[in-house]
Amino acid sequence: MKMKPTRDGYGEGLLELGRTNPDVVVLDADLAKSTRTEWFMKQYPERFFDMGIAEQDMLGTAAGLALGGKIPFVTTYGVFVAGRAWDQIRTTVAYAGLNVKIGGAHGGISVGPDGATHQALEEIALMRVLPGMTLIIPADAVEAKKATIAAAGINGPCYLRFAREATPVFTREEDPFVIGKANTLREGSDVTIIACGPILYEALLAGERLQEKGIEARVINMHTVKPLDEEAILKAASETGAIVTAEEHQIMGGLGGAVAEVLVKHKPVPVEMVGINDTFGESGTPEELAEKYGLRARDIMQAAERVLGRKK
């Protein structure tokens, strides 16, 4: 299995946009190497702005660039952009519906040894609550590139979440990517696992192991958390009658919460949620952390078995 971090897909997507769209500009806050915007900077230095360690100013500058007809991609770690610059995103960008794209790198606990301060676990909650915001969490590097290019094609604010670690590349170039349209990665009729981001690979492994036990699990790639593909969720609820969500994010306010909101309104079925359970992370290897915080295929599989036990 080929391994590659989703941030590489972002860097490649920006390079492609640099070539095809002269209005695309990129801003970073002193993390260009780490976020992969350095690739764009080297190719298109006149369209790259290093804003220094000043995330709030970066968002405002991007807003001005958008007002001037540009398509800015602001980039830094998720904690520093979604958290520190949240009011700038809310009031200056989202309230005015400005065409600013936000690349939040180093999302999730798999950031590893840097510890809790650098492990963004709140971006879904923080961004999903903003009216007009599009929120995309690509599952692998191939999808990350597609998502980056697609983000430039819509008008309005958009947050893209990327991860630091190399993770399996399991989607294919030819797979469709449409913002707001979930992809079904595996068919199944007993239970549905809905996940976003690199943890989807664990969800697929869980699906295989469940099959060994005679359980047919559907696996849905919910790469767009907002606008959420309610149709795919409700279809899965109707056809499988039980849902597991999986995300490398706080369960509260995350994908699990978003899916549950849809289900309670239209089709209440039992749900189990895999994610970070109301705690901060810590230093460790990505593997150790995934193990401790319950983000492995085994954890998803156990959640599926639990939810099946609750299914009427």
């Binding site: 709030q56 100013d57 405002g60 500058t61 807003a63 001005g64 660039l65 007002l67 001037g68 200056t92």
Partner: peptide, 12 residues
């Protein structure tokens, strides 16, 4: 927040 916006417009 305004001066940052002004700068972005000036860069544009």
């Amino acid at each position: 927040q305004g001066l940052s916006i002004a700068n972005g417009l000036a860069l544009a």
